[in-house]
């Protein structure tokens, strides 16, 4: 057995909503694997099926070699799970939470301390503080410690960085990197595109369907059209102007610039510049750029007419 997670054709419906539709993916042992998708894409449902809290309607899921339906007990004692919302006891102190989860898993904090030492030393000064009084970043670190306390083989982290500031997010990802070095397989979901590049491999999930699974570099390789980054003094006018260009394929605001692709593979920045110069726009700059993960995701997303998009 070389894969930690094996999902084949999993479908899950809730009344009228199809949360997951024919999802298949494989996570190798020791991999740091990211599931990227927006709210409602099906990330949480997938995680709940993997940690055996839900049953798939169709298809099968294997976790650490055990069947998620029949052998759920074996899976539960071997995984560490961090649900999407903060799920520790807010009226218990940092220390008490950790101790509690250690006893729940029939272990002690001392037994596996070296695994969490790196993270817990940051929490130590506040160990008497109630978990509810911690900052978002601290809460996530504590939740991670609690999920690790029984030395699981697989970590399932559902949106661990949502609502956490940039500094804590970065630290959190550094911790994941170190855990990976210790041989723990990590499956993490996130709505943030920029976190995709920190994973070994990622899967894009949209409306319950997997759009692509690949390494971050492999993913951007799927984007083949020439991409231009355009700037001008007035962004709204720039967007409108570019969208009315007959050859425009996609025009999206992208931070302080606008990302533009053309229907013609041979499109050149000079041509676009000429078109834009005919308007009242000023300070125009056009630059050919390499696509990022977010560009690729948007290109892969199923596109209807535009306005009626979920």
């Amino acid at each position: 057995m070389t894969s930690a997670v094996e999902v084949k054709g999993v479908t899950k419906k809730f009344k009228t909503v199809t949360a997951l539709s024919n999802v298949s993916l494989t996570v190798g042992k020791g991999e740091l694997f990211g599931i990227i998708g927006a709210d409602g894409a099906g990330k949480t449902t997938l995680f709940r099926i993997l940690c055996t809290l839900m049953l798939a309607d169709e298809g099968r899921a294997e976790v650490l070699g055990f069947d998620a339906r029949k052998e759920y007990r074996s899976i539960r004692s071997r995984i560490g799970y961090m649900p999407g919302r903060f799920s520790l006891y807010t009226d218990l102190s940092v220390e008490e939470n950790l101790k509690f989860f250690a006893t729940v898993f029939n272990t002690t904090v001392e037994e596996n301390y070296e695994l969490i030492a790196d993270i817990y030393t940051q929490l130590e000064p506040f160990k008497k503080r109630m978990a509810g009084q911690l900052s978002g970043g601290m809460k996530q670190k504590l939740a991670l410690c609690c999920a690790l306390i029984h030395r699981p083989d697989l970590l399932l982290l559902d949106e661990p960085t949502t609502g956490v500031d940039a500094v804590s997010r970065r630290e959190f990802w550094q911790m994941l990197g170190r855990l990976k070095e210790q041989g723990i397989t990590i499956l993490v979901s996130t709505p943030y595109m920029d976190e995709a590049s920190l994973c070994d491999r990622v899967a894009f999930l949209q409306d319950g369907t997997i759009l692509a699974v690949d390494t971050p570099v492999g993913i951007t390789g799927l984007f083949t059209a020439p991409l231009f980054s355009v700037r001008a003094n007035e962004k709204h006018k720039l967007l409108t102007r570019l969208r009315s260009y007959p050859h425009a394929k996609s025009v999206y605001a992208f931070g302080s610039s606008v990302h533009y692709t053309d229907h013609r593979p041979s499109a050149s920045s000079e041509e676009i510049m000429r078109y834009l110069s005919e308007s009242e726009l000023q300070e125009i700059t056009i630059e050919r750029i390499e696509p990022g993960i977010e560009d690729t995701f948007m290109a892969l997303m199923k596109t209807d007419d535009g306005s009626h998009h979920e």
Binding site: R76, S77, F101, C146
Partner: peptide, 13 residues
């Protein structure tokens, strides 16, 4: 409600 039940269920308890 608080989601801690999820974690308790996915434990050895």
């Amino acid at each position: 409600e608080s989601g801690t039940m999820e974690v308790l269920l996915v434990s050895s308890l």
